[in-house]
């Protein structure tokens, strides 16, 4: 018998090679079954997951900022309520994912520390600013749309806690995309200025959204291993193509154009062709030189530091209650 605490292990503890465990792990992967926290797993598999799941969690948490930016200035009470619900969802998604990463033996505080010290990465899409209200539409439609494309296959990822978190997230994410689409639709059908605002915003977000799927397959060295482990189900380019095929007809409904003159239906492939992306920009943003990297991290760090007293007070209160209830229990025992 083992308690959950005994099952936990430290992130950097070297795991001795366990032939039976290895065989069991290989069997699970070959049979497309789920790996659970109690199962033996190769260190590289664990590390890959810790990196991916914690980066994913960080992205959700940092992703609250570009939209939180507009809560106080939302154009109506209804839009404000929706935006608050959405930002609250992002916080929830971050927490589901942190919990999943913790089952791999990585402490929450270490992940937070890695994020605010700038050591950990998060999706570079959140390093772009949101200067207009239409950006709330573009984020929902394009950014959340791309995220859904990425995340639906992750619901079948081989690591159980990650896959289960993704199921919950995907269910909630669909409202995000629809509300973004609706914002753009209303602007597009509004005044000339509103229509232009929507178009200008889509022009800015289109390429960064396509880059969310990661570099082209030829430049994505870790993809093959992740696919062999059933963490990743489709390649970056496959998912990007799927996304483009989805948004081209959607843009037509919106009455907006996508800023890529090379988008054209390819009868032979049965897909839309599209132009090359500026990957130099992607790597610049990834390296921390994007338009909003510094401000995002600074805000997260400040929030963490200024929230310290809340964490301390909660812990002190819990401790006081524990002592009080222990004292009450002893008095009861003595009285008996």
């Amino acid at each position: 018998m083992a308690t959950a605490a005994q099952r936990k292990r430290s992130d950097d503890a070297e795991l001795p090679e366990d032939p039976a465990g290895r065989a069991h792990f290989d069997e699970l992967i070959a049979a497309d079954q789920r790996v659970e926290p109690t199962d033996w797993m190769p260190d590289a598999y664990r590390k890959t997951l810790v990196r991916q799941v914690s980066q994913h969690a960080h992205s959700e948490i940092i992703g609250m900022q570009p939209e939180g930016n507009w809560i106080t200035r939302a154009p109506s009470l209804k839009r404000k309520a929706i935006l608050m619900a959405k930002v609250q969802d992002e916080a929830g998604h971050g927490l589901y994912l942190y919990s999943a990463a913790q089952t791999l033996g990585t402490p929450r505080d270490k992940m937070t520390e890695d994020l605010i010290s700038g050591k950990a990465k998060y999706s570079s899409i959140f390093n772009y600013p949101t200067p207009t209200w239409a950006d709330m539409g573009s984020i929902g439609w394009l950014v959340d749309g791309a995220a859904i494309c990425n995340q639906v296959p992750l619901c079948r990822a081989s690591y159980g806690p990650y896959a289960r978190a993704m199921v919950r997230i995907c269910k909630e994410e669909s409202f995000h995309q629809r509300q973004g689409f609706e914002i753009l639709l209303h602007l597009s059908r509004g005044t000339k200025e509103q229509h232009e605002m929507a178009q200008e915003s889509v022009n800015r977000w289109y390429a960064p959204a396509l880059m969310m799927f990661g570099p082209p397959d030829a430049d994505s060295p870790n993809s093959a291993q992740s696919m062999a482990w059933n963490i990743k189900r489709f390649s970056n380019d496959e998912l990007r193509q799927r996304f483009v095929d989805m948004i081209v007809p959607q843009a037509e409904v919106l009455g907006l154009t996508l800023p890529d003159p090379d988008i054209k239906w390819n009868e032979e492939r049965g897909h839309y062709d599209f132009g090359d992306l500026d990957w130099d920009e992607f790597y610049e943003v990834l390296k921390g030189r994007g338009p909003a990297n510094a401000i995002r991290l600074e805000r997260r760090r400040t929030a963490h530091e200024e929230g310290a007293w809340v964490r301390e007070a909660a812990a002190a209160y819990a401790e006081r209650r524990r002592v009080e209830s222990e004292k009450a229990r002893l008095e009861k025992v003595q009285a008996a």
Binding site: G92, R108, A165, R311, A314, Y317
Partner: peptide
Amino acid sequence: AGSLHAPDAEMAVRNARDL
């Protein structure tokens, strides 16, 4: 449904409601 962090049971129930 899942797991979460909290300092005590009461906070865990409140956080669980929100999460």
